[in-house]
Amino acid sequence: MVQHTGALAAGQLLVATQPGRGGYFDRSVVLILEHNLEATVGVCLNLPTDTPVADVVAPFADKASVPAVIFEGGPVNNEIAVTLGEPATPESPPPGWQQIVGDIGVVDMSFPPELIDTSFAQLRVFVGLASWAPGQLEAELIRGSWFRSHARPEDVFGDPEGIWRRVLRRMGGGAGRWSTWSDDPTLN
């Protein structure tokens, strides 16, 4: 079941193709946060660091989804932090939360700490961004460097281990076959 995602847009996942070539985006899954005429910006969902959220953004630590560490969002602007959150009550999201897709949105980093527990079901913090200049991502898509899929909350807030394979399997078809890729080239 290959997904038809339409035009590039915020809320889509970019799933790296051609595993084993190395490089920053090898086997990565990127959530697009913004796509416009100036740029496309996203965060890598499967690059956890060893730094606990409590060490960097203590007020967000209790709602940080497991693993409760900072994630490497991408190789660009490592001084930028982005927090994604799922509202505790989706029908009445808190102020300071900007929806990306469904129950996934960006949380204002200056969100009042005393309201976090009642406002969010879960949070994930990223440092750095994945970013493309105008036309760059479109060229990569034409070359076959990425598959696209719709994002789900479990993609963003779930276990990052194995997300690349899980999303490919969910996509099915030709994309799904990539999920069986082995690190041993003789088995592929």
Rank of each mutant, 00 (worst) to 15 (best):
H4C: 04
E86S: 09
S182W: 05
M109S: 12
L137A: 11
N77Q: 14
P90L: 12
G96K: 03
G74H: 08
S182E: 14
H35M: 00
G174T: 07
I116E: 09
V2H: 11
G162Y: 01
D117S: 11
V167N: 10
P59C: 04
G22V: 07
Q122P: 00
A151C: 04
H150K: 07
Q98Y: 05
G102W: 09
P90S: 10
P112A: 10
L8P: 04
A7C: 00
P112D: 04
R177I: 10
L45V: 08
R148V: 11
A64L: 04
L168S: 08
D62N: 13
T180V: 00
L84D: 03
L45Q: 06
P160T: 04
R165P: 03
F157H: 09
C44N: 14
G11L: 04
A151F: 00
P48V: 11
V167I: 10
P52E: 15
A61H: 05
G6Q: 05
G74M: 00
R148Y: 01
Q98F: 03
L8D: 11
N78L: 13
V106M: 15
M171Y: 02
L123C: 08
L168Y: 09
L14T: 10
S119Y: 13
E138C: 03
V82M: 08
G158M: 07
V69M: 13
F147R: 09
D108C: 03
I163R: 11
L137R: 05
V101G: 05
Q12R: 09
P93E: 12
N78R: 14
F71Y: 15
I100E: 00
D183F: 10
R169I: 09
P153V: 07
G162K: 00
E161G: 06
A139V: 08
E91H: 15
A10N: 04
C44Q: 06
V106P: 03
F120T: 02
G135Y: 00
M1G: 13
M171A: 01
E34N: 14
V106N: 08
G20D: 04
G23V: 11
D62S: 13
A10C: 05
W178N: 01
G144L: 05
L141Y: 14
M1V: 13
Q18C: 07
G22N: 04
T5C: 12
Q12C: 07
D117T: 03
P93M: 08
L33P: 15
F147N: 05
R177M: 10
F147E: 09
V76M: 09
M171I: 12
P67C: 13
M171W: 00
Q18E: 12
T180H: 10
A39R: 13
A64T: 01
A151I: 01
P52C: 05
A9L: 06
G73H: 03
V167L: 05
E86L: 05
W164L: 13
L123M: 10
